[in-house]
Design a protein around this nucleic acid. Structure first.
Lengths: 326, 326
DNA sequence: CCTCCTCACTGAAACGATTCACAAGGTGCT
DNA sequence: AGCACCTTGTGAATCGTTTCAGTGAGGAGG
């Protein structure tokens, strides 16, 4: 019967038909566990993302799924919520499931589970994060450039006090975005004073509201006139709080987001954002993973995509008479 | 060893330690396939949603995952994209994986796979959809009421030509929303003429834009002054196209969405929407599923949640001098 | 007519965790 | 001392699929 299902050519048409009939009349369904046990691995790959509620990651997930399904593999989507403990638990579960490989957007540190997984021969592709070494695949975006683009744009608009919302110590992606912003601000203003860092609790809309409230509490002299946000959810939160407190965007405060999720363009004030090839990131990661899993002379690769600034209303002067950087 | 892992009390501390040491030094990881094969079922539930890119479903997924994880079960999230073929393929895969149960937001028709699954004794809970019979669990929202609320609100605002965007033939949820809208409009205006139905290709932002363009092509005399959209993505698309064509919202055209996703409140013009308890839907569905899977005297239930209208700017007069329904 | 080969099918072993019956050793009671 | 009982540990059977060696029938070629 195994032959009928897996190598129908090696079986005579008569037998094939007979077996197929029996299968349908008995309602037989192949047991995937037994197949996996025998094969030693499953027909599944794991995808662990930082925040399932962030549309950036669902777009990435679509890309991963598209490639995986085309190969007859299914994708187990796991949400770490940015918490190392949840990430570790998911990775353990995926290890027990003997997944073919894992696409991972890691939390701050690369957990020991990742090392363990790789030592077992399970490919792990890092997503939206540069690889620590050349012995591993990773699909990343040049976030230093992204930060530069965002800050450069605000400097071009005349802003001289800029906030970076997202913190400098957490995820490496954020550190790089910060470095890009800091470098651009330093070059543009000749000073480090021009940059303020705000670290919200979470990289969500609520975190953005909180950060905006904190900025508005600063004395007017120190208060930035614009912000680069580490992702679009933060940017939307900042925008919401600014609107709520009747700060005009972009006239009184300009905002640049990051990721360019679809909702950025639809926001109350359409958000300027740094666009990343979201689905392409997912597709490329899945392709590298499958190539590595096939194992025949796999070459590790670390493609880095270039982000693009998409300027919209949240950062560009609508009126000729503006008073930024005053 | 099985005892050490699963019933540590039945084993002496010395042996336990000895085994545990061996496990760590050898890097042993339990093989989930073998466990499942022996147990006859996996420690997994399936969740099949209509559109992973719709934040409504990711919120639902969080609810499902929360309950499942608390029971030590993991969730396989599958995306049917509203296509029966994809749904069927996912259900087949879940059957082969011997999942404990499936939470499903079905496409238009209940596929034969669902029947097959239930005949095998695998619980299936329908989500955001009423059950066809009493022999099955389903977690739904009173969409007729939701439609009434949305349309009633627009009638209250003085609108006398209203569009329903979403079609009348597809998903039963949409049919119910339409029925509620139609009933309210009939009662409010005494006529069936007051309601126009627009059926976009997809229930997405792009579909909304398309629908809005179609509405704007109508001659002014027949053109509705407001729309109830079958979900918030459509509503955001309608809003985008209206803004792009310089139709003022809500002054020239009012919009009501459905689901009240988080982005609705953050839209260019904050969207009036019909709120559903998104995470609660997911939690309840997962609870019913787990109860049915436990199998001891399970009573099928069909809870129906009541939606609430959340009025925002997209439908409420900002200026005293408005000219709707003229 | 015999040998050799191919083709289609059959049967048994293997994957690894769990479970259950059973053995061995020790304790407490009469 | 003898017996029952409890605790701890051991070994074999089991789940369902795949794989592979082996069997037999039939045909081609010498």
């Amino acid at each position: 019967m195994s032959n009928v299902l897996n190598r129908p050519d090696s079986v005579s048409p008569a037998t094939r038909e007979r077996v197929l009939n029996a299968i349908t009349t008995l309602g037989f369904v192949r047991n995937e566990s037994a197949r996996q046990l025998r094969a030693g691995h499953s027909r599944t790959i794991g995808l662990v993302v930082l925040d399932i509620a962030n549309p950036f990651f669902t777009d990435v997930a679509r890309g991963v799924e598209e490639v995986a399904n085309a190969q007859g593999l299914s994708v187990v989507l796991c949400n770490s919520d940015g918490r190392p403990a949840k990430e570790a638990a998911h990775l353990d579960a995926l290890t027990e499931q003997r997944v073919r490989g894992v696409v991972l957007t890691p939390t701050a540190d690369i957990s020991p589970q990742v090392q363990a997984l790789r030592q077992r021969g399970v490919p792990v592709v890092l997503l939206d994060r540069r690889a620590p070494g050349a012995d591993q695949c990773a699909v990343a975006v040049d976030d230093v450039l992204g930060g530069r683009l965002a800050a450069g744009h605000l400097l071009d608009q005349g802003h001289r006090r800029i906030a970076f919302i997202g913190g400098t110590t957490g995820l490496p992606q954020l550190q790089e975005r910060y470095q890009g912003v800091a470098a651009a601000v330093r070059e543009g203003t000749g000073s480090d004073e021009a940059l303020a860092v705000v670290t919200p609790d979470t990289l969500t809309v609520a975190g953005g509201r909180e950060a905006a409230a904190r900025i508005l509490r600063l004395p007017a002299g120190q208060r930035p006139t614009a912000a680069v946000c580490a992702n679009d959810l933060l940017a939307m939160g900042v925008l919401q709080e600014m609107v709520r407190q009747q700060v005009r965007v972009p006239d009184d405060f300009a905002i640049v987001g990051y990721d360019d999720i679809d909702y950025a363009a639809a926001a109350a004030v359409p958000l300027t954002s740094v666009r990343k090839p979201r689905e392409e990131l997912g597709r490329r990661a899945a392709e590298l993973l499958l190539d590595e899993a096939a194992a025949e002379g796999h070459q590790h690769q670390q493609p880095v995509f270039e982000p693009v600034l998409v300027a919209r209303e949240s950062s560009t002067a609508r009126h000729l008479s503006r008073s930024v950087a005053s």
